[in-house]
Design a protein around this nucleic acid. Structure first.
Lengths: 111, 111
DNA sequence: GTAGTTTATAGATAACCATCTATGAATAGG
DNA sequence: CCTATTCATAGATGGTTATCTATAAACTAC
């Protein structure tokens, strides 16, 4: 007796063998993108990239962005946590600069 | 009488003339990135790009992602609203495909 | 028409997040 | 020591969102 493979095209049948992106990897990428997907943080990153030496301190940003110092500090922390900003203390000031390598790796996700 | 510009380097003085990215533009970009900055939607986009003809319907995704149909539908709507997915109805099914141009424009934001 | 299948919507809930005010910690200069 | 400046943290609040169940809408086939 010959067994036939029944192809039921009237039912929804996802392509077999197609595995979704691993959830852990998706979570990692999403965390990175979440850090950038905020209007204020986009403005912050643009402002830092705009500066002469590509760095800025918190107090440089409160004025132009019209936000309180704790709010800016909150955003700097978010960006630092994912590695997009690196912080360096020079006396009273903390200078933040953009991690260009990670910045470029985001671009590669969409190529 | 000559007026001197007083340079007080002990105070925080943001570089004059440096204007932040326009808030409206920042909001637009953030909306687009927010749509992508979700682990489930990253998996959805990867699955669609993985398919043979780069398209998929909702019912193809519920199984592999382990989520309910309304949840998938919710995510498809989010992605469609920002233009990252386009929907085409063929009979009972709705086929979604990725807008490659917009996809590439995201990459350009990080170059 | 009825029945089955796929997609969309409505409503609820729990979790998350951007912002504020108030306060503390760290540093520099007297 | 004290004062001033910069940055970080804690707590509160209003808004957003990812998920579910239940239900409706759209389409196909009989």
């Amino acid at each position: 007796m010959v067994t036939r493979v029944q192809l039921d095209i009237s039912q929804c049948a996802p392509t077999p063998g197609v595995e979704p992106m691993a959830r852990t990897k998706a979570n990692e990428i999403a965390s990175l993108l979440k850090a950038v997907a905020d209007p204020t943080r986009l403005q912050i990153l643009a402002l830092i990239n705009q500066g002469e030496n590509s760095s800025a301190c918190t107090c440089d940003l409160t004025g132009p962005l019209g936000l309180s110092q704790p709010t800016i500090s909150h955003h700097m922390k978010k960006l630092t946590e994912v590695g997009l900003l690196s912080a360096e203390r020079r006396g009273t000031w903390v200078h933040y600069s953009v991690n260009k390598e990670l910045w470029g790796q985001i671009a590669e996700l969409f190529e």
